[in-house]
Design a protein around this nucleic acid. Structure first.
Length: 656
DNA sequence: GCCCTCCGCGCCCTCTGCTGGATCTCT
DNA sequence: AAGAGATCCAGCAGAGGGCGCGGAGGGC
């Protein structure tokens, strides 16, 4: 970088701004072929008095050795200049204009690294001495990364002075360089003799001086193209010279043509000089209008005013149809489109989508193209817009910014919390009713799952488990299968046994196979059913077990089973209905027999038919009698069951 | 120089829908 | 007790609406 190569002459310079530009950042900073080079602070710190504005900038226009720089199309640059001070005794002035400063330790020169001496326009000397013993000059920092040596050899600046702000075409350019407070401009032709370097085109050099924050004069040099077009009634701006500089020749062939000002940094063109110069500013960092509240700087007063309104809450543009008000009229127009007129000028060419804003259409188009420009740095997820990526990043950070005000549960998304609040803490929570059945489901999305699982049409017929019926909808199948609920739908193929539960059939089938997979480890007795083993363990191997006894209140005889007691009662006292029983030794009222069954207690009432407690019998020889109250299935199954109990009876007992 | 309008970017929000784990119910 | 299925629930992403705000250019 050229500026960095300048041997810092120390105290004689106020400041030379280094270029911030880095090769790796070129593409980032380049927009429309423009490379901005920002001044960097602190290259050389000022020691002298505050820099004065240029009083004159002169340049010898026709030095034969002056190189002519013909920038390529992509070589549009903005150069940053800075006035510097030199003690006059250190420099042998060679008059105004380009000064070929010999490379020495004492003088600032800018040489390419190839050590080839180039008469670079590195220093522009000012004619007047602002202070005795102090000479002003302008250094031009041209980094060699941007300008190849061969290009530099062709460089030629033909500097003119133009102090007329926003000079209109044809206006007399009057030098006025004495004031330092306001920014000043210099318009210059670059081509030697003011001739267009290419047909119908001239290069313009704009130099703008603005006091920077340190009170020093930052000068922005902009090289632009001027395109000449035929126009008869438009006069050319007359070239005027700097106070002490030679007058340049007006561009040949310019007379009678209208000028279209074309920005070299972007495709912008304008026939109006003031518009053009205003445009040129967008390529600079000039922001003279400071917000007094936040010190943010703006290019224009209007922008500043709008900004200040955001501080003060001033919203001058009020909607006539609602209470909304906005800082700018544009916001109001947009608001009205969204809320009132529903005008949507931006229409998707692929679908019927239309939007109020172009950016929304652009975002929408991504849903067609699948473009996902916003890549997560921690996973493969990529988003179509920045907000989704930001929201996605919470899945990595674990952040849950939304808190339920009632139970303080936290959520990653506001919508999730909203549903939570509505359904957990809300009143009259709306339920979603299935249109095909009576089911109501809290969430719509779950209703959709319900519809998909139960009410979607299946192309293949789903067969009933119990009969040949078939259905194309699962819900109909389930409803149908429920009609089989009280049927003994599980039938043994080897006998007449039938039961309601499949597991009962499985247990029953062991009576055919003889399989007894459940072993008592204490007495090595095998059982066909796990439940029977459990009962066995409780009765014979649990010392704390006390069996229930069904007592005949008439004679006091005890029975282990309800059915035996019933049989006994008929014999004992046909007229007496009351039967007492004792549970765990305490006399209790036995349950009344019903049509469905005898009303078993949780524990089995285990007494032998003789009335002896089961403890009196040998384990493994327990002969449980037929239980007559278990329904008709027991009649078929009892003869095959272990110890005479139906498996359903046992399951029921265990379940209790 | 200022106003007006348009534009673009960013941010936040809502609605929507899918997914999978947890829980409940039924068998 | 256990499995299967239904429902509940939170997480997460897609899509789009609405607004804030600064920038840029035309017109006066």
């Amino acid at each position: 970088m050229a500026a960095a190569e300048v041997p810092v002459p120390s105290e004689h310079f106020t400041q030379i701004k280094e270029q911030k530009w880095k090769p790796g950042e070129e593409e980032e900073k380049e927009e429309g072929g423009v490379q901005r080079m920002e001044a960097q602070e602190g290259a050389v710190e000022a020691e002298a008095a505050p820099c004065q504005l240029l009083d004159a900038v002169g340049l010898q226009k026709d030095q034969p050795e002056l190189p002519l720089w013909v920038p390529a199309e992509s070589d549009r640059r903005i150069l940053t200049l800075q006035t510097v001070h030199l003690a006059p005794q250190e420099v042998h002035l060679q008059g105004l204009g380009w000064l070929s400063v010999p490379h020495s330790e004492e003088f600032p020169v800018m040489l390419p690294q190839e050590e080839t001496f180039l008469p670079l326009p590195s220093v522009l000397w000012l004619e007047q001495e602002p202070q005795p013993g102090l000479q002003h000059c302008v250094t031009i920092s041209i980094p060699e990364e941007l300008y190849q040596p061969e290009e530099l050899e062709l460089m030629h600046f033909h500097l003119l002075q133009d102090s007329v702000p926003a000079a209109e075409v044809g206006q007399e350019l009057t030098p006025n360089l004495g004031e330092s407070a306001a920014p000043r401009k210099f318009e210059d032709q670059l081509s030697p003799g003011g001739e267009p370097d290419t047909e119908g085109e001239e290069r313009l050099l704009f130099v703008e001086m603005t006091p920077n924050s340190e009170g020093k004069d930052a000068i922005l040099l902009t090289i632009s193209h001027l395109r000449l077009e035929e126009q008869q009634d438009q006069a050319l701006p007359q070239q005027s010279s700097a106070p002490n500089a030679e007058t340049t020749t007006p561009p040949r062939g310019a007379k009678g043509k209208t000028r279209t000002f074309q920005c070299d940094a972007c495709p912008f063109t304008s026939s109006k000089f003031s518009t053009f110069t205003r445009h040129v500013k967008i390529h600079s960092d000039e922001r003279p209008h400071l917000c007094h509240l936040c010190l943010k700087a703006f290019r224009t007063v209007t922008l500043l005013r709008n900004h200040v309104n955001t501080h003060t809450g001033t919203r001058p543009h009020k909607c006539g149809d609602c209470d909304m008000a906005f800082v700018t009229s544009g916001e109001l127009v947009r608001h009205r489109r969204y809320k009132h007129t529903h005008e949507k000028p931006f229409k998707c060419s692929i679908c019927k989508y239309a939007s109020v804003e172009a950016s929304k259409l652009k975002r929408h188009i991504r849903s067609h193209t699948g473009e996902r420009p916003f890549q997560c740095c921690q996973c493969t997820y990529a988003s179509k817009d920045t907000y989704k990526l930001k929201r996605h990043m919470r899945t990595h950070s674990g952040e849950k910014p939304y808190e339920c005000p009632t139970c303080h549960a936290r959520f990653t998304q506001s919508g999730t919390m909203k549903i939570h609040v509505a359904q957990k803490h809300g009143e009259n929570v709306p339920k979603h009713e299935c249109p095909h059945c009576a089911t109501t489901i809290a969430r719509k999305s779950d209703l959709r799952v319900h519809l998909r699982n139960l009410h979607s049409h299946s192309p293949e017929e789903i067969k009933c488990r119990y009969c040949p019926a078939g259905f194309h909808e699962r819900y109909a199948l389930i409803q149908h299968q429920r009609t089989h609920k009280n049927e003994k739908k599980f039938k043994c193929k080897q006998c007449d046994y039938a039961c309601k539960q499949e597991r009962c059939l499985k247990a029953h089938l062991r009576t055919h196979t003889g399989e007894k997979p459940f072993l008592c480890l204490d007495c090595s007795k095998h059982f066909r059913q796990k439940q029977l083993l459990t009962v066995h363990l409780r009765k014979y191997h649990d010392p704390s077990f006390v069996p229930d006894v069904h007592l005949c209140l008439k004679c006091g005889k005890g029975f282990s089973r309800w059915s035996n007691l019933q049989r006994h009662r008929k014999k004992c006292d046909s007229e007496q209905e009351k039967v007492a029983t004792s549970k765990n030794g305490r006399p209790v009222q036995t349950r009344q027999a019903t049509e469905e069954g005898p009303g078993w207690d949780n524990g089995m009432s285990l007494l032998t038919d003789s009335g002896l407690p089961i403890e009196a019998q040998c384990p493994g020889e327990l002969a449980l009698g037929h239980h007559g109250g278990g329904g008709s299935e027991s009649a078929a199954g009892s003869e095959n069951l272990d110890e005479g109990l139906t498996c359903e009876m046992i399951f029921n007992m265990m379940d209790k």
